[in-house]
């Protein structure tokens, strides 16, 4: 028999290294001869989209497009340390450092423009599309490339951002271990085949607090990827660990979700800007995964009335639990 059930779960997630450990990101912004801006930082692109989101931030500050930002993050000898691409910290931490470096560069560019254009003040100067111009008299204009040409050395700014957390007391745990926190919730409908123990996800809704969305499509991509990883975690993935040995050490035996396993997911991006974050944006790479697993487990209970306290809920384990329950009921 096929039985359906619904489940919900919600979570909070503390981002960053946490617990008072200095969580530092550094970045350079540098004007290029052609008026583009290079960002140098040690933040790694692992597929999460750091290179893109962290290019959108300085583009916004400097009135440029992402194509005008040259993002350099691959070589330790020319980039400053920006911490690890983990702990859901790059958008917030390195995003802040890059934003500050870009703002500093903007200030310097405006000061140069005031001098070069023979103005008395920076009031009413606009920086857009690679140019700095006076809004009330647009002919008073200088391009970033023109400014670059006048420099004997490349114009370069540097910024550091350190997140704020407070170490917890070792006896009571009191402190401020993370900041900021991100929130999310997930609801799923499952169909359990009581003959085979198979769980199919029929429908899902997934809401993620992002502070501010920098790139909505990339956020959705994280949410869908996190959903799949959570499905694997609670339903399929089993290392076959026995006396310290991993028996399922191949992708033919260590089963991760395929396209066929995926339900339609309604992604809901919730915005509530965080004042200490770059444009209000908080990180989301990890929390997107977290509420999905328990929502599935709660839906399984709703469908067949068994509490699965051990994961993964493989068909065999679920079948056993259903049989057990039937026996008790009989």
């Amino acid at each position: 028999m096929k039985k359906r059930g619904k489940g919900i779960a919600c979570i909070f997630y503390g981002t960053g290294y946490g617990n008072g450990f200095p969580d530092v990101s550094r970045a350079y912004a540098e004007l290029q001869p052609d008026g583009k801006v290079a960002i140098y930082t040690g933040a790694t692109e692992v597929g999460q989209g750091a290179k893109t989101a962290l290019s959108q931030i300085p583009a916004e500050v400097l009135g440029l497009t992402v194509d005008d930002i040259i993002f350099i993050n691959e070589d330790t000898s020319i980039t400053p340390d920006a911490g690890t691409a983990a702990a859901t910290r790059q958008t917030y931490n390195t995003g802040n450092a890059i934003k500050m470096a870009a703002e500093e560069l903007k200030k310097e560019l405006i000061n140069i423009a005031v001098k070069e254009l023979g103005l008395n003040s920076d009031a009413g100067l606009e920086m857009k599309d690679g140019k700095i111009y006076l809004k009330i008299l647009p002919d008073k204009c200088i391009t970033l490339a023109q400014i670059a040409a006048k420099q004997s050395e490349p114009l370069r700014t540097f910024a550091t951002f350190t997140a704020q957390t407070v170490q917890i007391d070792p006896e009571t745990g009191q402190g401020a271990p993370y900041w900021p926190y991100t929130f999310s919730a997930c609801a799923v409908e499952v169909e359990v085949d009581t003959e085979t123990g198979q769980v199919e996800i029929i429908k899902a809704a997934h809401a993620q607090d992002v502070g501010r969305a920098i790139n909505p499509k990339m956020i959705e991509g994280q949410m869908e990827g996190g959903f799949a990883m959570a499905m694997g975690y609670v339903l399929y993935e089993d290392l076959g660990l026995e006396n310290g040995r991993i028996w399922n050490n191949k992708l033919s035996t260590y089963i991760i979700p395929t396209a066929m396993d995926m339900p339609e997911i309604q992604n809901i991006i919730v915005e509530d800007p965080e004042s200490t974050a770059p444009y209000g944006a908080k990180g989301i790479g990890e929390p997107v995964m977290i509420p999905v697993g328990p929502a599935i487990l709660n839906a399984i209970y709703d469908a067949v009335g068994v509490r699965m306290t051990e994961i993964p809920v493989t068909p065999m384990k679920l079948l056993q639990a259903i049989r057990e329950k039937e026996k008790q009921g009989a």
Partner: peptide, 10 residues
């Protein structure tokens, strides 16, 4: 202008 836009990944 750029924040909040689904620009294509670089």
């Amino acid at each position: 202008n750029v924040i909040g836009k689904s620009v294509i990944r670089v």
